[in-house]
Amino acid sequence: MNRINVISKKLYKIGLVVSLAIFLLFIFYDIHNLESNSKRYLSDHYISEGVQETGAINIVTSVLYDYRAFDTLGEATVLLTAAAILSFLVPITKDKMRGTPFTIIVSQTTQVFIPFLAILGMYLIFFGHLAPGGGFVGGVVIALIPILLTITYRVEFSEYKFKPDKKKVSEDIGAIGFVLIGLLGILTGSNFLANGQANVSLGDAGELISAGLIPYLNIMIGIKVGAGLAIIFNSLIKEK
């Protein structure tokens, strides 16, 4: 009896999912037949006017840090919340990490890699408005440094080099900096997170110092994401 019960339960779930799939198939088919591709005036505006309005030639960056910068503040908050949850839910336990000791090749290569990672991360952050990259990607690359240290030389060393408290504070500073740069817009008589609208000089598109406040927002997000991801990784790996 029990087996029949299990099988029927499984069939029920499969049926549920298959009917959802058929439903989605019909919806997607209908939507696709509507020829709605012509309705792109918002993105057309971004593409045609974005470079003049924001000064950044990477339009994704200008959408993320200028047109829809408020979304970015929200997602930065989500990341900060996640890091805070992890650091209190799975806190420091003085316990040795399991894992094989690496040979000298690994530890030496890690040392060689770290400066390159730092340069690459910096490049991605500072050139976020000119080339693919930006604060998030650059922050992830920066976060790789403590993560590599954790993997090769254990958690204790990584925590000794980058103190957990310092990481938390720099994450908070990144978030506060983002809001403060946004408040500059209000100070100059425009709205929150305003950039070109607040008469910030946008510079020549394509230069390193251009696009108004976008590079500084990028730096803040870079700091925040780097510190946040390092906290998240170390918290997860520390538990035995």
């Binding site: 593409i47 994704v60 993320l64 829809r68 979304d71 989500v78 990341l79 998030f136």
Partner: peptide, 19 residues
């Protein structure tokens, strides 16, 4: 460009939730 920006947001939020 808009969906790409939205995708970045979605990735970050999804990653945080997974963590």
């Amino acid at each position: 460009p808009i969906p790409q920006a939205l995708a970045l947001t979605t990735i970050v939020i999804g990653g945080s939730v997974t963590a």
